[in-house]
Design a protein around this nucleic acid. Structure first.
Lengths: 115, 115
DNA sequence: TTGACATATTCCGTTATCGGAATACGATTC
DNA sequence: GAATCGTATTCCGATAACGGAATATGTCAA
């Protein structure tokens, strides 16, 4: 086995900077592929490939509009990420940093007491 | 060029299920490597390798304790992910789903009006 | 129906990743 | 200081990701 398919889930899909940028752009509303190509400064095939990955994990929806394809953000799969990361929110909050310090000091004190 | 190193940032580090599991375990407190090996049911080298990635993006800190190495969670790098994902929070909320429906209906109405 | 435009797919080469097995290293313990 | 324990690193082999270039598909316009 080599590695998890990028297409497997939102975590993998979003690990790529370009795909995050695409989602950022789509947050501003529906966009045709060539719009994205221009805004990102990428080659068109690369953009289409990234869009495919995003489509496969459900992060974007497509709609045909004449010869264009309009892509639209669908953030729902991001909720899984949000939920998971939120679990750790305390970890980076100021107050818990302080708590860590207190706990460390406490540990040191105990260590001394054992002598 | 092939692909960005997994080791590059928190997004990539966390894209791997095993590494997320490790962080989940460390959320419960410091752990020695063999603890994690047992809890995860993985081979020890694999665990050490995942820990290395996590270390390199700053998601865990290490402390030497005799012949053991105690790993400890450091969630700070997750804040970047949290911040980014939070940008899209409205996208999956119930109220905005409803708004989407309304907008769709409106679009349909307009389409009919054009006939 | 031919040509131009918009997008998707395929093919290619390079590189990173992952798991597994073997091995190296470093700190204890005997 | 030799055996042992805990962990890290290295060396595979397989896979798949990525960018680039070429090409295919599909739609509109003349």
């Amino acid at each position: 086995m080599a590695r998890a398919a990028t297409t497997a889930d939102a975590f993998n899909a979003v690990a790529e900077l370009r795909r995050r940028q695409i989602l950022d752009l789509l947050a501003g509303g529906e966009r045709a592929v060539n719009d994205l190509v221009e805004l990102l400064g990428l080659a068109q095939p690369q953009v289409s490939k990234h869009l495919r990955v995003l489509r496969e994990v459900g992060l974007v929806d497509v709609r045909d509009e004449g010869r264009q394809r309009m892509y639209r953000l669908n953030g729902r799969p991001l909720k899984i990420i949000h939920d998971w990361v939120s679990t750790f929110e305390q970890t980076w909050s100021r107050r818990f940093d302080q708590l860590d310090v207190v706990l460390e000091e406490l540990k040191d004190t105990e260590a001394k007491d054992e002598n």
